[in-house]
Amino acid sequence: MTVTYKDWHEMLSFALLTYRTSIRTLTGATLYSLVYGMEAVIPIEVEIPSMRVIAKSELEEAEWANQCYEQLNLIDEKRLTTLCHDQCYQQKMARVFNARYNGPSVVRETFSGGAIILSDMDGTENAPLVNADVLKKYYL
């Protein structure tokens, strides 16, 4: 099968499945598990059974329903864990961002291609070159 840009609608369901079952860096969980309280069984696991699918298939229906109910009861705990992970991730990103900020600077020299040499307000030159795209202009 040749895939072209005209076939996007046929591939959309696969892209959505991948998006919903991939672990997000921000939350540390999949979107599917946050909504339904358990991980999704991907199509390949049905064709070639994984240990998880084999274990579920050997359960009685009542036992399987009981386990699903227990997992739903744990969904609040999973969401709190995700919230904690989210807050830690945001703090980490804030630390990284704030570590790069050196305070107000003056453009000392510009080069072609957008490279800039900055200096502090007292005239001390900052060593690394900076890309002009990451600077924010400030007017007095």
Rank of each mutant, 00 (worst) to 15 (best):
M1K: 12
T2P: 11
V3T: 13
V3G: 05
T4A: 09
Y5H: 09
H9S: 12
H9A: 13
E10W: 07
M11D: 07
L12W: 08
S13H: 13
A15W: 09
R20W: 03
R20V: 03
T21F: 02
T21S: 06
S22P: 01
S22G: 02
I23W: 00
T25R: 13
T27F: 02
T27H: 01
T27A: 00
G28K: 00
A29C: 06
Y32L: 00
Y32M: 01
Y36G: 02
G37V: 00
M38L: 05
A40P: 07
I44C: 05
E45M: 01
E45N: 00
P49T: 03
S50D: 01
R52I: 04
V53K: 04
S57G: 02
E58G: 05
L59K: 15
A62D: 15
A62T: 13
E63S: 11
W64R: 15
A65W: 04
N66K: 15
Q67A: 03
Y69E: 14
L72T: 02
N73W: 02
N73A: 05
I75E: 03
I75G: 00
I75K: 14
D76R: 01
K78Y: 05
K78T: 10
R79T: 00
T81I: 03
T81S: 10
T81R: 12
T82M: 07
T82H: 01
L83K: 08
C84V: 11
H85L: 02
H85F: 04
Q87S: 04
C88S: 09
C88T: 06
Y89E: 09
Y89F: 14
Y89Q: 10
Q91F: 10
A94F: 06
A94M: 06
R95H: 12
R95D: 15
N98S: 09
A99E: 14
A99K: 14
R100M: 12
R108W: 08
E109I: 04
T110L: 07
F111E: 04
S112K: 12
G113M: 03
A115M: 10
I117Q: 14
I117M: 11
S119Q: 15
D120T: 14
D120I: 00
D120W: 05
M121F: 02
M121W: 02
D122L: 03
G123Q: 07
G123Y: 06
T124R: 12
E125A: 08
E125W: 03
N126H: 15
A127G: 07
L129T: 13
L129P: 04
L129N: 11
D133A: 08
V134W: 04
V134L: 06
L135H: 03
K136A: 09
K136L: 13
K136N: 11
K137S: 11
Y138Q: 08
Y138K: 08
Y139S: 12
L140V: 06
